Measured scan of single mutants.
Amino acid sequence: MSIQHFRVALIPFFAAFCLPVFAHPETLVKVKDAEDQLGARVGYIELDLNSGKILESFRPEERFPMMSTFKVLLCGAVLSRVDAGQEQLGRRIHYSQNDLVEYSPVTEKHLTDGMTVRELCSAAITMSDNTAANLLLTTIGGPKELTAFLHNMGDHVTRLDRWEPELNEAIPNDERDTTMPAAMATTLRKLLTGELLTLASRQQLIDWMEADKVAGPLLRSALPAGWFIADKSGAGERGSRGIIAALGPDGKPSRIVVIYTTGSQATMDERNRQIAEIGASLIKHW
């Protein structure tokens, strides 16, 4: 067993022997301040990774656009098919120029040779490549099948209805392509620590998230040296922004954090800054 596999296998073990965790309302004060600064709703939840206990939450059962955070769930569904012998990570998928959609920095470079399922998941999570996500959605049967996968996990809230990039439209009061912070946090925890996926697939999923290259201005910008984070960000229309993450000190994750916002007129930089400040408060009061 590799060191990384050992780390993920012992996530519940280490967490069980940690000192009790206590909620700190100071972080919620910052979440509410972010709402004021952005002029928009902000949803927040913080779960203990081992027990699933909610440590703090704000608007945990209000719907927010998922945006690209759905790509972690998508690759979880792909990995479940791999575990069941219905898919192979090494299978190569070929596609054409007509398949390319807006923001496809990886797939646009491989029109000639195609990409493997493993490479597509890596591109979808680490670079948020939209064509990679659409190609992977095709392998599982489309958005409705991802929703069905989530329902089978016990998540009857999260739903995907459309493809990239239309799913980022974020129309107010439109339930399409949305989740709730509580539902997303619980589902992410199941994917990373539950028995739904094999140990190898859980490790692969967290490795992809740990290698995320496009979430630097968010929670990662607030992390002290030595902290662990595996995350996936999302951005959408109407001032929408979000991030889902597993993080913790001492090089291992111990909490799940989900943050979503929508309806702001603020710039992307300002949305990023507010999420980073929430992260800084979380870490300060850990």
Rank of each mutant, 00 (worst) to 15 (best):
A84R: 12
I93D: 02
I125M: 11
Q97W: 11
M153Y: 08
T139A: 15
G154P: 04
K190H: 13
V157K: 15
M66R: 00
V101Y: 08
V106E: 14
R41T: 09
W208F: 07
E56V: 08
L205G: 00
N50W: 10
A200V: 11
A246W: 06
N152S: 14
L218Q: 03
I243G: 01
T262E: 10
M268F: 11
N134V: 04
A215H: 04
A183S: 11
T138G: 13
P143W: 02
A182M: 15
R238C: 14
K32P: 01
A15P: 07
D174L: 04
P65F: 03
R63Y: 07
G242L: 00
L49R: 03
K144P: 11
N50T: 14
E277T: 13
N98R: 15
I3H: 12
E195C: 08
H94I: 15
D231I: 04
S264V: 05
V101E: 09
H110K: 12
G263H: 07
G239N: 05
A276I: 07
M127P: 01
F228L: 06
C18K: 02
T262F: 05
G242N: 03
S122Q: 14
L49Y: 12
E108A: 09
E237C: 12
K213W: 06
G236F: 02
D212Y: 03
C75M: 06
D33G: 13
S68I: 00
L191C: 07
R241K: 06
T198K: 13
L247V: 11
I229W: 02
P217Y: 08
L120F: 04
Y260F: 15
T262C: 10
P25T: 11
W286L: 04
V31L: 11
G279W: 03
G236P: 00
G52L: 05
H151W: 15
N272G: 05
R255W: 01
S233E: 01
M67R: 01
R59D: 02
H110Q: 09
G141T: 05
A133G: 12
M115I: 07
Q203D: 11
G52R: 05
A34C: 10
A124I: 05
D113C: 09
L111M: 13
P12C: 13
M127H: 08
W286V: 02
Q37M: 14
R81F: 10
L28M: 12
A183E: 11
F58I: 08
P181Q: 00
G39D: 12
V101P: 02
V42L: 13
D33F: 03
A276L: 08
Q88F: 13
P165F: 05
G142A: 04
L137C: 06
F64C: 02
A124M: 07
M268A: 09
G242I: 00
E164Y: 05
D177E: 02
F6T: 06
G141M: 06
I171F: 13
L160M: 12
G226E: 10
V31N: 02
E145R: 13
V21K: 06
Y44I: 08
I206A: 14
Y260T: 04
Y103H: 07
A16Q: 12
T147A: 07
I3P: 14
S68L: 00
K252E: 14
F14Y: 09
F17G: 09
A225F: 10
S51P: 03
K30Q: 09
A266W: 06
T262S: 11
G242D: 01
R220H: 04
D174Q: 06
L19D: 10
N98Y: 14
A40I: 04
L89P: 07
G236D: 04
L197R: 05
A15M: 15
P65W: 01
L197M: 09
A215E: 04
G52T: 05
G239S: 05
G248E: 01
T147S: 11
G234L: 01
R162K: 07
G154D: 08
S51T: 14
G141C: 05
G39N: 14
G114T: 04
T178E: 02
T139P: 04
L247E: 02
I125A: 04
E35I: 03
L120G: 02
E56C: 08
R41Q: 10
D161G: 03
A230M: 07
A124Y: 00
Q88V: 11
G216D: 08
T187Q: 05
W163H: 09
W163A: 10
A84N: 14
A225M: 15
N50K: 13
T69R: 00
G85M: 08
M127E: 13
G142N: 06
I140G: 04
I54Y: 09
E119M: 06
F64Q: 02
A77M: 11
A182W: 13
I283L: 10
T139N: 10
A200G: 14
T186I: 15
L188Y: 08
Q4W: 08
V8P: 10
H24I: 10
E87W: 05
A132G: 05
A15C: 15
D250K: 13
S128W: 00
G114L: 04
S104W: 01
Y103G: 06
M127A: 08
T267D: 14
S2Y: 12
R7H: 13
L196Q: 15
L150G: 05
V42P: 00
S233K: 01
I283D: 01
I11Y: 11
E46D: 07
E62C: 07
P253V: 09
A185V: 06
G141E: 06
Y95K: 01
V117K: 01
L10P: 08
N173V: 10
L136M: 07
S254E: 13
L218S: 03
A124E: 01
T267E: 13
S96A: 12
T139I: 13
P224W: 03
R273G: 14
S240Q: 07
Q37N: 15
L28H: 12
V72A: 08
I45W: 02
R59I: 02
L282H: 02
A266K: 13
A170I: 09
E87Y: 05
N272V: 04
T186Q: 14
A246K: 03
A170P: 08
S2V: 08
R162I: 02
P20H: 10
V101T: 15
I171R: 14
L137Q: 05
R162D: 09
D250W: 10
L100T: 07
G248Q: 01
G216H: 08
E195L: 04
S104P: 02
I93Q: 05
T139G: 10
L136K: 00
M67P: 00
V21Y: 05
R59T: 02
K144H: 09
G52S: 07
G141F: 04
E35Q: 08
I283M: 11
K32C: 09
P217M: 14
P249H: 07
F13M: 15
L219Q: 04
N130K: 00
G85S: 10
L79Y: 02
Q86L: 13
I244R: 00
L38N: 06
H24C: 08
Q204K: 10
L74V: 08
S2G: 07
N168W: 03
R118I: 10
C121G: 05
L199A: 12
V101D: 12
E56S: 11
V29C: 12
L55T: 08
L219R: 03
L150R: 00
T139L: 11
G76N: 01
L199C: 15
A77G: 08
E108G: 12
I125K: 00
L191F: 11
E164P: 01
E119F: 02
D113H: 11
Y95E: 01
P165C: 09
I256P: 00
I45Q: 05
S57G: 11
L160I: 13
Q88A: 14
I229N: 02
D269C: 11
E277A: 11
A185R: 00
G52M: 06
A84K: 11
E175A: 14
L111H: 09
L19A: 15
N130D: 05
A16D: 03
D83K: 04
I278E: 00
L197G: 04
Q203W: 07
C75I: 07
K232P: 00
R255H: 05
M180N: 13
T179M: 01
E61P: 01
G251K: 14
A77W: 06
D161P: 01
